[in-house]
């Protein structure tokens, strides 16, 4: 299981446009991807309602995980959607 622990740098946190971009990117990944806070059960990263339901704010840490071929590259791409400021 590969995972990335990143700090959400987008102004809106994991809401609105950043959430949509994150979920769109996750939907393109062929394997299952989950996302959550470090200490809680993760949710399906391809579900916009679950992702915004996490209510992650600017500056909070999230963990994104996936398993299988190409998981590392996929996670880097997903992490970039929330760390690239202004995205």
């Amino acid at each position: 299981m590969a995972e990335r622990r990143v700090t959400v740098q987008t102004e809106a946190g994991l809401h609105a446009r950043p959430a949509a971009l994150f979920v769109q990117a996750a939907t393109k990944v062929p394997m299952d991807v989950v996302v959550g806070r470090p200490d809680t059960d993760p949710v399906n990263a391809k579900s916009i309602l679950s992702v915004i339901g996490l209510d992650v704010r600017h500056g909070e840490e999230i963990v994104i995980s996936a398993e299988g071929d190409g998981a590392e590259t996929a996670l880097d791409r997903l992490a970039a959607t929330v760390t690239a400021n202004g995205a």
């Binding site: 949509a20 399906n44 391809k46 579900s47 916009i48 309602l49």
Partner: peptide
């Protein structure tokens, strides 16, 4: 933008 965000909700795999 508003409506495409809503379309994304309708297509939510969780739903």
């Amino acid at each position: 933008d508003v409506l495409s965000a809503q379309a994304m909700m309708a297509r939510d795999p969780g739903l």
